[in-house]
Simulated assay, not measured.
Amino acid sequence: MTLHHFVLIVHLLAATIWVGGHLFLLVCFLPQALKEKNPQIILNFEKKFEKLGMTSLILLIITGIWMAYDFGVTAESWFHFKTGFEKAISIKLLLLFATFICAVCAQFFILPNLDKNAIWKMAIIITTVTLIGITMLVLGSTMRYGGI
């Protein structure tokens, strides 16, 4: 097994946790929280998932940048959008930034004041982060064929 293959496996496992956790939250917990107007359901999930989820996200960033360099897409060529690899990686970086913005909004503006009247704001963040994660997963799958 090459080092690149090992890094890819770590990346895929981290993506499984990150995207799978958000899908699980979106499909299983969010509908119940919205129906019951009970933000505690979301807060309980967040409390249990946060350490594993954030560790996975950090691993995704590290391994993603590592593999980008393996594909010849260094920081100097990010956002040039010239090759298929550059396009896929640059879009993934933009989506990572969008995820970061969602996380900041959630942590500093929504979660501290989460109540039954504001639960819909958290629903928007959860849905957005989940869709971003799925999009990044699809973009990652294109790397096998040279990107997009």
Rank of each mutant, 00 (worst) to 15 (best):
M1S: 10
H5K: 13
H5T: 12
H5P: 02
F6Y: 11
I9F: 09
V10D: 14
H11A: 04
L13N: 15
L13H: 05
A14H: 13
A14D: 14
A14P: 06
A15Q: 14
V19M: 15
V19Y: 08
G20T: 09
G20S: 15
G20H: 10
G21D: 02
L23V: 06
L23D: 08
L23E: 13
F24H: 06
L25A: 03
F29M: 10
L30I: 05
L30S: 03
P31M: 11
A33K: 01
A33V: 00
A33L: 02
K35M: 15
K37W: 08
K37G: 14
N38L: 02
Q40L: 09
I42H: 01
I42W: 01
L43Y: 01
L43K: 12
L43W: 01
L43V: 04
K48D: 02
F49H: 00
E50P: 00
E50Y: 00
E50W: 00
E50C: 00
M54E: 07
M54A: 03
M54W: 00
T55Q: 06
S56M: 01
L57G: 10
L59A: 04
L59N: 12
L60A: 02
I61E: 01
I61A: 11
I62R: 04
I62C: 11
T63I: 01
I65A: 12
M67S: 06
A68H: 07
Y69A: 13
D70N: 13
D70H: 04
F71K: 15
F71P: 00
T74H: 07
A75L: 11
A75V: 14
W78Y: 11
F79R: 07
H80W: 03
F81G: 06
K82L: 13
K82G: 15
K82M: 10
T83H: 05
T83F: 08
G84H: 09
F85W: 08
F85V: 09
E86W: 08
A88V: 13
A88T: 12
A88P: 10
A88D: 15
A88Q: 15
I89E: 03
I89M: 10
L93T: 05
L94Y: 04
L94H: 01
L94D: 02
V104P: 01
A106D: 04
F109K: 07
F109V: 08
L111N: 15
L114N: 05
N117S: 08
N117V: 07
A118E: 07
A118G: 12
K121F: 10
M122Y: 07
A123N: 06
I124H: 15
I125F: 09
I125T: 09
I126G: 07
T127F: 12
T127H: 10
T130A: 08
T130P: 06
I132W: 04
I132G: 04
I134R: 11
I134S: 11
I134K: 13
T135L: 10
M136L: 07
M136T: 04
M136A: 07
L139S: 02
L139E: 02
L139C: 03
G140M: 05
T142P: 09
T142A: 08
M143H: 07
G146P: 09
G147H: 04
G147T: 04
I148V: 05
I148T: 11
I148H: 14
